[in-house]
């Protein structure tokens, strides 16, 4: 049924957030890191991608509307533009809130012919979720991804910073146990690593002092 019939009066359309209404969550360190990144490029717009990585870290691994709005506000871009950039790239978590760990299984060519789908089907049935879904305990999100370009270790998976491979069912059992036991949120950790490699050593230190 068309939304026209479902949505009530025209006055109920949600409005774009006003600047004064935004809750800004970037920590001081994040603001400093973004400021350092501004000096790397001749135009501020280039900070959108690194800015989204910072936001993904600051917002617990999920880029919801508020996260996107904050990036837009800080870089003086329109909300729609930042949402457009974030949803283009597969590593920004905009569609689904990830669990504490995002298990990305490569099923592309070399991995494919080396049994990647076996691993994928095993994980799906073990965790009870499908592509883009998170386990009920919030621990693991599962995603099928395209080539991770580490084909000599096929089949390869990525969890946070780390590539693992070649994996098989037993390997996955061990890895999942390790991840469950680890206190780290690897989704947030990966975002942090990615921010850290883009600011220089001295800039990073100054921001986190």
């Amino acid at each position: 049924m068309s939304e026209l019939l479902q949505l009530g009066s025209v006055n109920q359309r949600p409005q774009p957030p006003k600047r004064e209404e935004l809750t800004l969550r970037f920590s001081d360190a994040a603001v400093k890191e973004l400021d350092a990144l501004r000096t790397h490029y001749p135009e501020e717009k280039a900070c959108v991608l690194p800015g989204l990585w910072i936001a993904q870290r600051e917002y617990g691994g999920f880029l919801d509307g508020e996260a996107l709005a904050e990036v837009a506000y800080r870089l003086d871009r329109s909300y729609a533009e930042v949402e457009g950039v974030a949803t283009f790239y597969s590593m920004y978590n905009t569609a689904h809130r990830p669990g504490r760990h995002k298990i990305e299984v490569c099923t592309c060519l070399s991995c494919h012919v080396n049994g990647a789908y076996r691993v994928w089907d095993y994980l799906k049935s073990k965790l009870g979720v499908g592509h883009g879904e998170t386990t009920a305990d919030g621990e693991f999100m599962l995603e099928e991804v395209e080539c991770l370009d580490a084909c000599d270790r096929a089949p390869v998976i990525q969890v946070g910073d780390q590539y693992y491979g070649p994996v098989d069912d037993a390997y996955m059992d061990r890895l999942l146990d390790e991840l469950r036991a680890s206190p780290v949120n690897t989704v947030v950790q990966m975002a942090d690593s990615i921010v850290a490699v883009q600011v220089t050593g001295p800039e990073r230190e100054a921001a986190h002092r």
Partner: peptide
């Protein structure tokens, strides 16, 4: 194409 979160096109 879309507005931000399909909100009102103001």
């Amino acid at each position: 194409p879309s507005t931000f979160e399909l909100r009102d096109f103001t």
